[in-house]
Write a protein that binds this DNA or RNA. Structure first.
Length: 260
DNA sequence: ACGTGCTCCTGTGTGC
DNA sequence: TGCACACAGGAGCACG
């Protein structure tokens, strides 16, 4: 579930809670999330240091450690961060960063799809993973040219992290709804005008979601997201929403407002 | 170059 | 009540 707005919310959370605190311990409860990196190496890289700054690219959160090393966090589907003083360990805590004075930041991830790795730089990591430009940082020209050079369905392009970084299933549905574009419409058949409209709505939706701390239910009633469920109706025309698999995901759209 | 389906996982909700 | 099972969906992969 964590898409760009969620990860941006996590990033701000780290900024508010966890910077400039001395790291006294790193507790690894499940090695799987470290992706082959040994708990010892992680601990050695962090112990005695502190988190200096944060960055984000798409769904990836980066935390700078003294000595210009970066933690790269990916939240999979169910990952999130929790911070507290004398915080009790929960059943899904996978890695806990322990600071001085008994404060700690936990990487909580029920389904173990999340990952924490070390990187030398954000740029290096992004290049390594072949991530496309961040969906909030990309220019309108770059956005349109990427969309219009692909013959894939527009929903799959929006969700393709090598094309655009940060958009997942939920927000792609919302962006397409706002743009009145059918999810299976081929990217290369979008006119420049419609591509520009899609770009504006991408920014609008992501900005709105960040402002609401990525709570889909907190989005305005005129949005698709609060109605995105079985039996849901289009907030604009009241038509029953279509629910169908597109690009391997459950997509919701309005069959009247979003025609092919 | 595209879509499809499988896998990794486990909490949650539904139906019998 | 308890069990079986579908479902959720990020990402990487094999396959056609």
């Amino acid at each position: 579930m964590p898409e760009l707005p969620d990860v941006e919310t996590f990033r701000r959370f780290v900024d508010e809670t966890s910077l400039h605190r001395k790291l006294v311990d790193v507790r690894v409860f499940n090695r799987r999330v470290l992706n082959g990196l040994s708990p010892q190496r992680l601990k050695r890289a962090l112990q005695g240091q502190s988190f200096r700054s944060t960055a984000r690219h798409g769904k990836h959160l980066f935390v700078e450690v003294d000595g210009s090393r970066w933690l790269a966090l990916h939240f999979g589907m169910t990952g999130y961060l929790d911070f507290g003083r004398q915080r009790r360990t929960g059943p899904h805590d996978r890695v806990v960063f322990v600071f001085a004075e008994e404060y700690s930041l936990a990487f909580v991830c029920a389904r173990l799809f999340g990952r924490i790795t070390l990187a030398d730089s954000v740029e290096g990591f992004v290049a390594d993973k072949r991530l496309g430009p961040d969906a909030m940082a990309v220019s309108g020209e770059e956005f349109a040219s990427r969309i219009r050079r692909s013959k894939a369905t527009i929903k799959s392009i929006l969700m393709d992290q090598s094309q655009l970084s940060g958009i997942g299933n939920l927000y792609s549905d919302e962006i397409l709804f706002q743009s009145r574009i059918h999810p299976t419409f081929p990217g290369h058949r979008l006119t420049t005008e419609r591509a520009a409209c899609l770009y504006r709505n991408t920014r609008k939706v992501l900005r709105m979601a960040i402002g609401r701390k990525a709570d889909p239910w907190a989005m305005p009633q005129s949005c698709l997201l609060p109605h995105r469920e079985r039996e849901g109706r289009c907030p604009s025309c009241r038509a029953a929403l279509t629910r169908q698999t597109v690009a391997g995901r459950t997509a919701y759209w309005c069959p009247r407002c979003q025609r092919k």
